[in-house]
């Protein structure tokens, strides 16, 4: 069985696919927005691991 380019199934599942697509787009926008707000407001701190300490000590 071969599916045609525009099968009936695509029509039936359109609302579901559109809804999932919009949810995923909203998730990306939310993660991006939260990251932007947290970084610009100074809530985010760089981790102070050994690499960071070494780098600070080496200068």
């Amino acid at each position: 069985m071969s599916l045609s380019r525009r099968h009936d199934m695509h029509v039936r599942r359109f609302s579901r696919n559109l809804g999932v697509g919009l949810c995923l787009a909203a998730l990306i926008a939310i993660v991006f927005g939260l990251t932007f707000v947290k970084v610009t407001r100074g809530d985010f701190e760089m981790p102070r691991g050994p690499a960071a300490t070494q780098s600070a000590g080496g200068e």
Binding site: M9, R12, R13, S15, V20
Partner: peptide, 9 residues
Amino acid sequence: LTEDEPQFG
């Protein structure tokens, strides 16, 4: 099979 496909709603 697809007749009763659940919609996003």
